[in-house]
Computed example of a mutant assay.
Amino acid sequence: MAIRTDGLHHVTAIGGNPRRNVDFYARTLGLRLVKTTVNFDDPGVYHLYYGDAEGTPGTLMTLFPWEGVTPGRHGTGQATTTSFSVPELSLGWWEGHLTKLGLQTTRSANLEEEALTFLDPDGLRLSLVAHPQGDPRDPWDTPLVPAEHAIRGLHSVTMQVAKEDASTDMLTDGLGLRYVGEHGDKLRFAAGDGGPGALVDVLVTPNAPRGLVAGGTVHHVAWRAPDDATQHAWREELLSKGVEVTEILDRQYFHSIYFREPGGTLFEVATDDLGFSVDEPLLELGRALKLPPWLEPRREQIQGALPELNLPDENNPEVAETLANRQTQGV
């Protein structure tokens, strides 16, 4: 395989009430809402992007929050756990923080990693992983979650499959990942040098029920490509292997192709270029509804059908800095 991904670009899941979604990901988890837009294929539904200050690839969790969505079912053929990276000594703080907010958490340890697993309000399985080698990425700095404990970005995803070989072959031959060993009851694969943001675990459960992608489940997992030329070559290589791949799609902030790995999980390859400041300044990210040019003529109709979001003041970097300073000074 000549083309290899550098790791995870983003994970996209399906949620419920949009206001509750913002409250959980922006306040409880302390992520920045870096883009408020809509599902380009179904503009009656928000598409909310959460990540670090700039929405750097590898930090992004995105949600389609859909009021009244039918609950899904975790099982084979989907990514069943999305893990975030946190500092090594922060799990105790997170355990107290989440418990105080009424969330049930479970501690576990595999290899040298400790993890704290819990569900979001719609039943999506999330995990915070303390990586012993640390994570050099800068967090989104907000008093809602102190910087010394804050999420650094994605750590890994867990794919659940009924059969091992075809899915793992796709990871190695289709994405350029390498097998790095067993991790508890999972097989671990890594992109590049590995580490947070470049890992995927495969859980093989032949007798488990098939998953149903709906509310509280992952819709797709996106992998990084540096630019359009690499993505185009990647698409041609996948096609040459007999993989059904979409045309290259304009997602406004990156370009994308989609295909399913043999076990059923939907994969995306998304480019690192463009970014979230192409249509609004860095300081303003996430604060206004942004639409692609082809949907802009329908703005009034689209905006009128969407509920208002209660975005925290801390989403604005200048406000976040002021509040953090006041907190430090005990004001």
Rank of each mutant, 00 (worst) to 15 (best):
L285P: 01
N316Y: 06
P293L: 15
P297E: 08
K290R: 12
K290M: 15
Q301M: 13
R298F: 11
P307G: 08
L283P: 04
L289F: 01
L291G: 02
P317M: 09
P292W: 06
L291E: 04
E280K: 00
G286R: 08
L306Q: 02
Q301L: 12
N310K: 01
E300M: 11
R298E: 05
N310D: 12
P293I: 14
R299I: 13
L282Q: 04
L283G: 10
Q301W: 02
A288F: 14
E308N: 07
P293H: 08
E296M: 14
L289R: 00
L295F: 13
E308K: 06
E296L: 12
L289V: 09
W294P: 03
P317T: 07
D279L: 13
E308G: 07
N310I: 15
L311N: 00
N310Q: 06
Q301V: 14
R298W: 00
L282A: 13
P293T: 10
G304H: 00
R287K: 12
D279V: 14
P293N: 00
W294L: 11
N315Q: 10
A305D: 09
A288K: 11
L309E: 02
I302Q: 03
P317L: 10
V278R: 07
P297M: 06
L285C: 08
L295T: 07
E284I: 13
L282Y: 05
G286Y: 11
Q303C: 13
N316I: 12
L306F: 03
L282P: 10
Q301Y: 05
E308P: 08
E284D: 13
E280R: 09
P312K: 05
A305W: 06
A305I: 12
L311C: 07
N315V: 14
L282V: 15
E280G: 09
E300H: 06
P307M: 09
E280H: 05
N316G: 08
E300K: 04
P292Q: 05
Q301S: 07
R298H: 03
V278D: 07
A288M: 14
N315M: 09
L282K: 04
E284N: 01
L283K: 10
V278C: 04
Q303I: 14
L289N: 00
P312F: 01
Q301E: 11
R298L: 15
E300P: 01
G304S: 03
W294S: 06
K290C: 11
E314I: 14
L283R: 11
L283A: 15
L283N: 04
Q303P: 05
P281F: 09
E284S: 09
E308C: 01
P281M: 09
R298M: 12
V278M: 07
E280P: 09
E318K: 07
P317Q: 02
R299Q: 01
P312A: 04
N316S: 08
A305E: 04
E314S: 10
P281W: 05
R299F: 10
D313V: 15
I302C: 02
R299N: 06
N315C: 04
E280S: 06
L291C: 01
D313N: 07
P293R: 05
E300N: 05
P297D: 02
P292G: 02
P292A: 08
N315W: 02
